[in-house]
Amino acid sequence: MPDSRPGTRFPGYDVLSKRQGPSWNEKTREVIAKRLATASEPRFFTADEFLTVVAAASRIVPQPPTRRPVPIAALVDRKLHLMQSDGYRLPGTPRDGEAWRLGLKALDLETRVAFGVPFHILKEADQDFLLARMQSGELRDPAWTDMASDVFFRMRLARDIVLAYYSHPTAWSEIGWGGPASPRGYVRIDYDERDPWEAAEVKGGNVVAARRKNNRVR
């Protein structure tokens, strides 16, 4: 069975090692370079809002302390700054950016009422408690206005955070995905088949063999 600790299933695999190879085209290099260069300061969120987003992101998608974290909050921030929207919303829910501001404001209020401090100061367990209540729609302060807290959780907060995290090469490496694939796609596509430019999973506890294969990925 594979090691259950996060980040240990594909030892040594880094999707970025393929960056200059035939699996990436110019356009992809350009797009990913821009994403990797995302600065950590907010452009859409206020400083206070941003602290809350950073804290929420670290609970929705916890990252190991052993590597450089994916700047999830900044990625969410850029999407809102560029007004890249999902394009659909429920009645009572404002457009993406406004929905975020409204939801963060309501969350902040709920947090202060329940714990007396801002969300990002809370213990992780308390943050999780609030997020779980939001997910189940149990946060019902009038500050939410017509937007249900569960809708905000599912369609905005958690969705945007999860999408931001899995838009990052670090996350791709973590799950052993092949990553960008053009012009070169794949050849071996049946069960248990792996191209030499794909992640190798630890099999039968043999970490060394998997690492050796992953170091050769280009």
């Binding site: 035939p22 070169r184 050849v187």
Partner: peptide, 10 residues
């Protein structure tokens, strides 16, 4: 094929 000979590995 896509990428021609530059994409020889595929």
């Amino acid at each position: 094929n896509m990428g021609g000979w530059r994409n020889w590995s595929q």
